[in-house]
Amino acid sequence: MTSAAKVYLVGAGPGDPDLITLKAIKALQQAEVVLVDDLVNPALLAHCPQARIVPVGKRGGCKSTPQHFINRMLVALAEQGQVVVRLKGGDPFVFGRGGEEMLALRAANIPYEIIPGMTSGLSACASMEVPATHRSYNHGVTLITGHTQDGEPLPWRALVESHTTLVIYMGMQHLPDISRGLIAAGMSPDMPCMVVENGTRDNQRAAISSLQAMPYQAHQQGLKSPAIIVVGEVVKLARTSQQEQDWQQNLQRWASLADAA
Rank of each mutant, 00 (worst) to 15 (best):
R157N: 10
G140R: 05
A76S: 14
G146N: 05
G89H: 02
N138W: 02
G99H: 10
T133Y: 05
P116Y: 01
M102Q: 13
H139A: 12
T142H: 06
G140K: 04
A78D: 04
V94H: 02
I70R: 02
L105G: 06
Q67P: 07
K88L: 04
E100G: 11
T164A: 15
L166R: 06
V83N: 04
I70V: 13
N138R: 04
H68Y: 12
E129R: 13
A108C: 13
Q80L: 13
W156Q: 05
T148V: 04
R135T: 03
F93D: 01
T165Q: 09
P176C: 12
G171F: 08
G96D: 03
I110D: 09
R86V: 06
A76I: 07
P131W: 07
E113W: 05
L77K: 11
Q80N: 12
H139R: 15
T142K: 08
A78Q: 05
M102T: 10
G171Q: 10
H147A: 07
L77M: 11
L122F: 10
A126K: 03
N109L: 13
A158S: 15
I144C: 04
H134R: 02
V83H: 03
F69H: 10
S120F: 01
A132R: 00
Q67T: 06
M102N: 01
V94D: 01
G89Y: 03
F93L: 14
I110A: 10
C125I: 06
S162L: 11
G98E: 00
Q173D: 14
M128F: 01
K63L: 13
G140C: 06
V141Q: 02
G89L: 05
A108F: 12
E79P: 03
S127T: 12
V167D: 10
V160S: 14
Q82C: 14
K63I: 12
L175D: 11
V130L: 06
P155Q: 08
Y112G: 03
G61L: 03
G117E: 03
P155W: 08
Q82R: 15
A132M: 11
E100Y: 07
F95V: 01
L159R: 13
V83K: 15
H163M: 13
M73C: 12
R97L: 04
P116S: 09
S162F: 08
N109K: 15
T65E: 11
P153C: 10
S162G: 15
H174N: 14
K88I: 01
T133M: 09
R72S: 15
V83R: 15
I115W: 08
L105Y: 10
G96W: 00
Y137G: 00
E129A: 14
T133K: 08
G121S: 05
G81L: 08
V160N: 14
A126N: 07
I168W: 00
P111A: 08
S64A: 15
M118F: 11
A108N: 09
Q82E: 15
L154Q: 07
Q149K: 15
N71G: 06
